[in-house]
Amino acid sequence: MTARHLFKTLQWGLILFCLVFSIVGGVAAERVLDVLACQPHTNPALSTCSSLTNPIALRLAPFLSAGSIVDYPFVLLRNFWALLLVWGLALYAARWADRNPTAAAALLPRPGRAHPADVLRWGVGGLFWLLLAGFIVFIFALGLPIVGNQTARTILESLGCSPGTFDPFSSPCMRAPGFWTPRLSLYVLPLAGPLLAPVWLVMGFWDVLLGWLALIVATYALKSHLSQPTRPPVRPHPSAKPLRRS
């Protein structure tokens, strides 16, 4: 598939996805839930969904309670903004690759011609930029005031936990052990939770940030090492005479 075909596929797929859930979002959500055989619930113990299908079902459930067709576009933006953002970035990348084929071809190893060392160098470079971009997005998503609170609530709701507004710990799931719930519990505190997101980020995810930074530094060092040109060993000329010791 060429870059132009990929762009057209992503473009029409996005248009079709938005039209379906903006016009008949309730019917589409009901059909998808029937296929998944999933009935989401805020309490994971009462949910009939698996750990993989429950986040999807929780995103589709608001379409079933929408008042009218006018509410469907707003429900779509609220529940699928992350998917639409990633979809838009993929569209931009495909469009750029279509308009700049030479530059796009230079970023990818050529099959059949690429040396294994070139493939390794490209893979390590891509991993470095992926780790760096993910680190920046993670900090902005959970470290900005108010934004961190909304991100934390979105993650908790995707896990089947719906904390209260005035008393977040009234929900039994807020006291459940795990990776996310103890770290995100401070984000949903009244008043202080949305405003002190940078503090909660450091307090709750300091080990994740340190490990992530260590991976970025190690990948950057490996990328720099692989980017250095290898010098072939110097061979003496056939006509050169060996030096004699006095």
Rank of each mutant, 00 (worst) to 15 (best):
K8Q: 07
W12G: 00
L16G: 13
L16W: 15
C18I: 15
F21S: 03
I23W: 11
V27R: 08
E30V: 01
C38G: 08
N43Q: 14
N43R: 09
P44H: 13
A45L: 11
S51N: 01
T53E: 14
P55R: 02
A66Q: 09
S68N: 14
Y72V: 10
Y72Q: 12
N79V: 03
N79C: 06
F80V: 06
F80M: 08
L84C: 02
W87V: 01
A93R: 14
R95W: 15
A103N: 11
A106K: 14
L107S: 09
L108G: 00
H115C: 00
V124F: 07
V124L: 10
L131C: 09
L132D: 06
G134S: 02
F138H: 10
L142A: 00
I146S: 01
G148F: 06
Q150P: 00
T151L: 04
I155Y: 11
S162I: 01
F169L: 09
S170F: 05
R175L: 11
G178D: 05
F179I: 10
P182R: 09
P182F: 05
R183Q: 07
P194D: 04
L195C: 08
P198L: 10
V199P: 04
V199Y: 12
L201A: 09
G211S: 06
G211V: 10
W212R: 01
T219Q: 02
H225Q: 12
H225E: 11
S227R: 08
R231L: 14
P232E: 12
V234E: 15
S239M: 03
A240Y: 05
